[in-house]
């Protein structure tokens, strides 16, 4: 998995989120064109959208560490609402002028506007909230766009039954970007482990989508199967990386028993 951006194992410095996002946008657009030109290669597209999950999870982590005033889950599904709603609203209409750049740009703009309101009008005074909101919205836009493109099988969305999976896509993406931080919450939380968990969950979600893709009537079978297999392979690899990191950081691993020094 050479495409994964956040691998440096023991690095103290945190990776800035905008770099992750730049990578996510570049790989996202490459991935879009791969899926659009040759649907049979869309298992490569799946690998290339994992960075978008990581960028979004990194931003959720950044925002929530400041004690945002919303729960972690609120920011997750708010960000997905910005990104995915833009994609959902525009995808189904048959059109010629439409391009992935436009949707990603609008999603990013919507996220930026909401962050701007939070900082300038409500005066939250969280540094770089605009940038991070924009990244969450933009990344979810990328994810939704490419998954829909793969499911459409390069033939366009109009007239298909793909809209039946909008709800699960929406809530699945939301949970996957908010959960890495929420799952790691605690005093010993750090960016590396959070992003590793984000990779595991991204692969888990794409394998769920791969399974759904196999069942969808309009989706070609080969890309969906490729998506499922490649996601499961990725899942196994990422979980083993994550588990190695957990064993380094955890206090102790015990099968059962009572805590020391407690009467029972």
């Amino acid at each position: 998995m050479t495409t994964q951006p956040s691998e440096p194992p023991v690095e103290k410095k945190e990776i800035p989120n905008y770099k992750l996002y730049l990578l996510a946008v570049i790989t996202g657009i490459i991935s879009y064109f791969i899926a659009a030109l040759n649907p049979n290669l869309s298992f490569i597209s799946i690998i290339l959208i994992w960075p978008a999950f990581i960028a979004a999870a990194g931003c959720v982590e950044f925002l929530c560490r400041y004690g945002l005033g919303t729960g972690t889950s609120s920011i997750g599904y708010w960000g997905t609402a910005c990104g995915a709603t833009v994609v959902f609203a525009s995808q189904f209409i048959e059109t010629t002028a439409y391009s992935p750049f436009l949707e990603i740009a609008i999603a990013t703009l919507l996220g930026y506007a909401a962050g701007f309101c939070a900082n300038k009008i409500i005066k939250m005074k969280i540094p770089r909230i605009e940038l991070n909101s924009a990244i969450i919205a933009g990344s979810t836009g990328i994810i939704a766009l490419i998954i829909l493109e793969i499911f459409a099988g390069g033939a366009g969305m109009a007239g298909t039954t793909v809209y039946y999976i909008y709800p699960v896509m929406y809530i699945g993406i939301a949970l996957t970007i908010l959960h890495p931080y929420n799952g790691n919450l605690g005093a010993g939380e750090n960016q590396t482990r959070t992003l590793m968990l984000a990779m595991c969950e991204a692969a888990l979600l794409t394998s769920l989508f791969g399974f759904i893709g196999i069942l969808l009537p309009n989706t070609p079978f080969i890309p969906a199967l490729g998506m499922l297999i490649i996601s499961i392979i990725g899942f196994v690899i990422f979980v083993s990386i994550w588990w190695k990191r957990v064993k380094e950081e955890v206090y102790d691993v015990v099968w059962a028993g009572y805590p020391e020094g407690v009467d029972h």
Binding site: N182, N184, L185, C200, V250, Y251
Partner: peptide, 11 residues
């Protein structure tokens, strides 16, 4: 994932 990660964060 959530359980193991959260317990790890309580190290």
């Amino acid at each position: 994932f959530a359980h193991i990660s959260r317990i790890t964060s309580m190290a």
